[in-house]
Simulated assay, not measured.
Amino acid sequence: MTDRARVLAYRVAAHQFDRGTADPAALRVFDLGVQDSERSAVPALAARLPEVPDLSAFTLTWSVRGAPHWHRPKSLPALAAALWPLSDADALARMNRPKVDAPLDVFRAVVEALKSVVDGPMTKGEASTRLTPLVPPEVTGWCRGCRATHVHDPIFRVAVLPAGLRFDPDAKTVTFVPIKGRRIPQRTRGFDGLVHDYLALHGPAGPSEVAAYFGAPVKDVKAVWPDDLVEVSRGKFLPADRVEAFENPPSPDVARLLPPLDPYLSARDRDLLVPDKAHQKEVWRILGRPGAIMMDGEILGIWRAKVSGKRLDVTLSPFAPLDVERFEEEAQRVARARGLESARIK
């Protein structure tokens, strides 16, 4: 088995594509959270579970990189502390601002103000209106779309979790709900645990991949890099309890239609996942993201779908000749995950 084949085999097993558990909470992807920016979470979980999952026991909020993720509810206080910026430079990076004086202080001011104004269920628009006059002016600006001055959206997003807010998933518009017992973190605590979680799922990898995933400066990640990791190849690490799984991964035998933003695609070493640069551009399009055709860990093409009545029409665009029959059942699963009755591969 080549080095690359070993990494892919390890990740297929780590992502639990074997559908060996029926309990969503037991999936390793929830250690980091499951992104749901484009209705991607349920199909992503269905690729790992025997049945379409019920997410009512999980909590949705803006967390990693300010993107919406589903999490185990009990993990949120620790996650808020672990994601607290590591430094002033990290705070600038997380807020996506070129220059702010005392960035950590400004970040805390925004979080404290957001916590104070959202004292019950509240829409994003109402929260933004209340928040804007309470924060430093350098984090606000005129928005053409809203025709109003408000806190820049990236800053708003990364402040939501440390302010102790979650979403009401049943609301038609973004609505925040305070998390019971919420407390603002005093400092970064537990980032090393997130490093372990990333490497367990997407390793072996190094500080640059971890930094890119969390949107933090590489310098800061290197400064807090855990010393209990095992370097399995030059500059690539794994948690010690995952080394044996890496050395002896089962041979993958899976065919999946991964949705856009599936956790498997969120690893930051894209050259390893998809070596061909032209194919990378297809898989990770910025606009109009497609799904990815995955067989035995290899990304073999992209797919798109269109709803036709109660049927999902799936169009496959493989990078090379493909055994389409292996994906017929997966197309049906994707349809069920989207609440449809059937699927047809075109």
Rank of each mutant, 00 (worst) to 15 (best):
R39H: 12
V307S: 13
V218D: 07
K310L: 11
V117E: 00
V111A: 00
G203F: 02
M295S: 13
H69K: 00
P98Q: 00
P162N: 10
Q35D: 05
R130W: 01
G297L: 07
A26L: 05
I184V: 15
D153L: 10
R72L: 14
D153Q: 12
E112G: 13
V324P: 08
I179S: 06
A14M: 01
D253H: 02
P24I: 13
L161N: 10
G206M: 03
G66V: 02
L199G: 02
R130P: 02
C143K: 09
V195P: 09
P43D: 14
L161M: 07
G181A: 08
V52N: 03
G33S: 04
A25W: 01
M95V: 01
G120R: 12
A335W: 01
L257M: 05
V218F: 02
T129I: 02
V314G: 10
K115F: 01
S40T: 09
T175C: 12
S87R: 13
G203P: 11
P321F: 01
S342R: 14
C146T: 08
V139S: 01
D88K: 09
A212C: 04
V117I: 00
S342W: 06
A337E: 12
G297V: 05
A205N: 08
W142P: 13
A102P: 00
R311H: 11
H15R: 04
L49M: 07
Y10C: 10
R144S: 13
T21H: 12
R326P: 05
R344H: 02
F156E: 12
L322Q: 05
V12H: 05
P178D: 04
R289W: 03
